[in-house]
Design a binder for these strands. Structure first.
Lengths: 197, 197
DNA sequence: AATAAAACTGACTGATTGATCAGTTTTATT
DNA sequence: AATAAAACTGATCAATCAGTCAGTTTTATT
């Protein structure tokens, strides 16, 4: 691994666990066995380092989901929906630092004035919502999912899993313990045949 | 309003919008027309100021909910559940600074080492979950809600509304636009008569 | 009015930190 | 081996900020 990748990895961990302001360049440097000036050689400022971190997290998430859906095959839309939810929760545990970073407020604040930041965040959340939506649309086509607004329902499901992951990351409640209830609720939503679109 | 209350109000706003580290005592002081030393006369440290802010947010939330349930009467558990969700979303808009503060990571990190902080957060989230749970239990008693685990379902609903509010505060998606879908989903959950407890 | 307590302030300090830069070491190319 | 480019470093700086304290003003009490 190159030094630049080393720095990026250390910075991801530190920004995720301590936040932007509470992470010093000296800290990041020490973790890679370098000196802070080295970081400023690779990244022109602390903010640029953060943007690179967020960009690499975006790439990682997009790649993970693309890999999962490249391998996995689903018998219908409902199973795809459940698979996506499971994979999201698995990823939130397996790549906890990514989701910790996304559950900090700093990226969203920076996004207000920085296009690069905003685009990374948009790519990440669009990836999530689009997959949920695709599963819902497919499910409506194959009959495994009833009438409902795919986009809004996708957002509602994302809100729920995002909230569950946040509660877990904040040490409030355990997301895993709600898994069965979540799946059960999704099936009830899917089974709905009466609602108008 | 006393100077101490003035400081507390200014600090709430600044901690909520800029975070703990990104809020300086000079900033808080300026907002109240005072000098930073004045704040240190009322609060012995920046951390103690933050704990006081969180405590006052806790008091505010508990009082708001107690006031709402003191006035409002519900015909059954399901209506109480829907009312609670609505009030939660209303409060998240009306007292945005409270929820912005609760959607920062700093309080939860501080809670790991500080009992006062942990207790405030516990009080707040227990207030939310307990009310949802109470509505679910009451609904099961009066027949408006089917068989399900009240505690886990309460947590699931809280995850959803918490996620929706976070998305809105982060400028990602509009929570209000999902209101109808949310209520509809809750009714489907409630209508479930087949599930084992 | 006298007195004490409470509230408040200006000036200051030590520590931290993002960033710079001249100079050194390492790597790649011929 | 010679050379150039890339990677890295030690020293340093200006700015920011939490916290202190001696001293002043305001408020309450008698």
């Amino acid at each position: 691994m190159s030094k630049k990748e080393d720095i990026l990895k250390a910075a991801t961990l530190l920004f995720a666990t301590n936040g932007f302001k509470d992470t010093s360049m000296v800290e990041v440097a020490k973790m890679t066995g370098a000196v802070s000036a080295t970081i400023f050689y690779h990244f022109k400022s602390k903010e640029e380092l953060f943007l690179s971190v967020l960009g690499s997290v975006k790439d990682g998430i997009l790649e993970e989901f693309s890999h999962y859906f490249g391998e996995k095959k689903f018998v219908n839309g409902l199973e795809m929906l459940e698979g996506t939810v499971s994979f999201y929760l698995y990823l939130a545990g397996n790549k906890a630092e990514w989701f910790l970073l996304l559950h900090r407020y700093y990226p969203y604040k920076l996004a207000k004035e920085n296009d690069t930041c905003r685009h990374s965040l948009e790519d990440i959340y669009n990836c999530f919502v689009d997959i949920f939506e695709k599963a819902l649309v497919q499910g409506q086509a194959d009959g495994s999912i009833g009438k409902l607004s795919p986009r809004k329902t996708a957002l509602l499901i994302l809100s729920t899993v995002d909230g569950m992951v946040r509660f877990k990351n904040c040490n409030l409640y355990d997301a895993g313990a709600l898994y069965n209830e979540l799946i059960s609720t999704i099936r009830q939503m899917a089974a709905n045949k009466n609602q108008k679109t």
